[in-house]
Design a protein around this nucleic acid. Sequence first.
DNA 1: AAATCCCTGTGACGATCGACACACTAAAAC
DNA 2: GTTTTAGTGTGTCGATCGTCACAGGGATTT
Lengths: 230, 230
Amino acid sequence: MVQVSRSAPEIEKALDASFIFQLLSEAERERFIGSARLRSYRAGEVVFHMGDPGDSMMLIETGEVCISYPAEDGRVAVLSELKPGSVFGEIALLDGEPRSAAASAATNCTLIVFERHAFLEMLRANWALAEAVLKLICARLRRSDARMADLAFSDLPGRLARTLIARAKPAPGGGLLRLSDSQSALATLAGGSRENVNRWLRKWHKEGLIAIADGRISVLDPQGLLRATR
Amino acid sequence: MVQVSRSAPEIEKALDASFIFQLLSEAERERFIGSARLRSYRAGEVVFHMGDPGDSMMLIETGEVCISYPAEDGRVAVLSELKPGSVFGEIALLDGEPRSAAASAATNCTLIVFERHAFLEMLRANWALAEAVLKLICARLRRSDARMADLAFSDLPGRLARTLIARAKPAPGGGLLRLSDSQSALATLAGGSRENVNRWLRKWHKEGLIAIADGRISVLDPQGLLRATR
DNA sequence: AAATCCCTGTGACGATCGACACACTAAAAC
DNA sequence: GTTTTAGTGTGTCGATCGTCACAGGGATTT
């Protein structure tokens, strides 16, 4: 991890995209920026471990961050992969408890770090900000519950299909979608073994639901994919 | 469901035990009580369905409430069973979205219902209350994540063992613990079939980890139970 | 050019799970 | 007192999963 020293205007620019920033007055923005620090991580580096004391929260400026939940035996469940503009680490900051999950850099990335004390003060002074944070956490809870249902109700093909669709992006050409993840990565995301992920992908490929080319997967028929998993 | 008309002092008494109430001033309490309604449900009755518009939140006065997540095909995952003093339904109230789960009365119960508008006003005016609600939701999120890890990492015996330990209460006599749930109830709580729950219980019974008598289960060796599931 | 490493494809095996099926018991309803 | 119902104990069967094992391909390194 590298502490980056950069001028405040640059942090301000990075913050413009974030929902938080738009709720602050001019004076508040300055205090906010003053309390923020910029840090840079290389792909694979750990941002924090589960159980660490958590007195800060991060906004992703560039790159992607992986939030995961480690088991005692070494296995890892990936909770989410976050993109620029996303906030994470806010739970421990808000309630003062240890980190409830681990965060690591999925790619090289730069993060804007806010300290607990300054952020809580802003929350107290600015109800719109507090309301936004409340809704943010509510959204987290909803996603978490939905994901739990996914785990409880769906088997591997179901979870894999949802993972594919969730991570696919609209193709530049037509209505297709494509994504480029290794099968091992898909396996940990969907919560299964690499071998079985391979088997299901091949099966769907034969059925024409997905296409595989250049190590990339194209989701040809999202609805058909979901229908095939019932 | 029955709308109960009761005098404000009685609602006030019921509220005394709740963490929320202790954070309010005298004037706020009166406004709060004025906006609260008391409702009574019989065992099995539905309090709200998933997807309902959610402009209220409930505090359990007496009885127990079951929060569950229904799948399209009719299966149900039980998220939690709440006891008197617990609050639920606050997510939809806070973010204005539809109910993210279903709630039904596990036993006969009476609930104190707060309306959205009045509660949000109080939140805005009382930072300590807002902070308490923030922490409440953070705690929900932590429990939800932990439960997700449980589902992702553990097989049936692991989940069942944790369910037993979580629901067991200290025995009056010694250090033992006991609980009285039907095996079907345990099955839905642990996310498995009734038959297999039976098989694992019998297995642990033979190994001396639990005792079964009078239709009640005593957890004799919690640590041993957890160790047996690795 | 050879060796190494990561990703992909397949086969086989054992463990576990859900589903179905049925016997047994005890309490509750009639 | 008999019937009904809810909960419990077991057996079997088929599907799926994870694991081990190994073979091939493509890129990078040495």
